[in-house]
Design a binder for these strands. Structure first.
Lengths: 180, 180
DNA sequence: GCAACCAGTTGCGATTTGCAAGCAGTTGAT
DNA sequence: ATCAACTGCTTGCAAATCGCAACTGGTTGC
């Protein structure tokens, strides 16, 4: 995958697989999009799936190379790096929505980890667009001029859904836990 | 991934990645869905990306294990095996549509290999549903009772788009090639 | 009878993965 | 000023996976 571009084929599915077709890249983007992680350590220690630090470093580097992420210094801490989603990555929201819907239907998901996918599916393209606007504001620094003040932000709707499930589960008997 | 189900997490995105997150599984499903490949050799020798036979055999076995495909003997040839998409796999059509749309927009696709993705995107959920009905008829043996006789089958629309691009390219100067 | 075709399998070097530990710095509290 | 905790990684290494090439046992059509 150098400058002379050694791709296996020019098919859009294949080219996407070449970028995202491994066991970690999509999960990192998911955590940045839906879990609001921006720093290396956040991604490392809050990872549900337990990514290793060398693999995280490698994937972040590749995602930056591919134009999916940008890396910037954190002004509050000389050693911290802030990773941001690019427009290219933000436009994966509909892909995530469809994958989340499919996975929730066909795979043995846990309720609290799939509620957000289900809400996003139910919200449809309109909600996806709204969520992408929120991500642009957060990651690309765009203004909130086009924001609809009457609508609850999508990230808040998703968090509320997650917390409702957790609260119900805690009440039902098990010892509940908060956290993202 | 045994009976005791050792998953990294119950997140729908993660579980999907565990099944499809490699460099070949999605491409095999793509070729079966959009290229109408049903036999081992078809998948092997017509693969745009050049999959190796051992990897193809391994992925087919895993996809059958996961309930994405079924394998049956071909009555016309004692050695031939017919692979069919299951409903679980057919319902990946919207995922493919979104990935194809995203890839076509952001990656260096070739026109003739992305025209089908673009047509599928433009057709929207209505076209995806129609295509899924066609796949159910072809792979699950469902009746064509619900088919709309006024509508050109999706696979035919996609093929027509592909051939139109190829014909134009051939006319424009280069030596064109047919083939799927 | 024989070439072509069928779905894979085998051997093997190269690459990738994943775990554990370590590193050179920075920060904040004492 | 000191020190523990935290920062984004890097390194070493064993295990698993990948991908190429050759090969297998059997079937089919001519």
């Amino acid at each position: 995958m150098d400058a002379v571009s050694e791709h296996r084929s020019g098919c859009p599915i294949n080219l996407t697989v070449e970028i995202l077709g491994d066991r970690w890249s999509l999960l990192i983007l998911r955590d940045m999009m839906f879990g609001n992680r921006r720093h290396f350590r956040e991604l490392l220690t809050n990872s549900q799936e337990g990514i290793a630090s060398n693999i995280l470093a490698d994937r972040l580097r590749k995602l930056v190379e591919q134009g999916m992420l940008t890396r910037a210094d954190d002004p509050t801490h000389k050693q911290k790096a802030i990773y941001s989603l690019t427009e290219k990555a933000i436009e994966l929201v509909p892909v995530f929505a469809q994958i989340g819907a499919w996975g929730s239907k066909w795979l043995p998901v846990s309720e609290e980890l799939s509620i957000r996918a289900i809400l996003l599916e139910q919200g449809g393209p309109r909600m996806w667009e709204q969520f992408m606007r929120e991500l642009r504001r957060e990651h690309l620094g765009e203004s909130a001029a086009d924001a609809d003040p009457d609508e609850l932000p999508v990230w808040m709707q998703l968090r509320a859904g997650y917390e409702a499930v957790m609260a119900r589960k805690a009440g039902e008997g098990g010892a509940g836990q908060t956290g993202d």
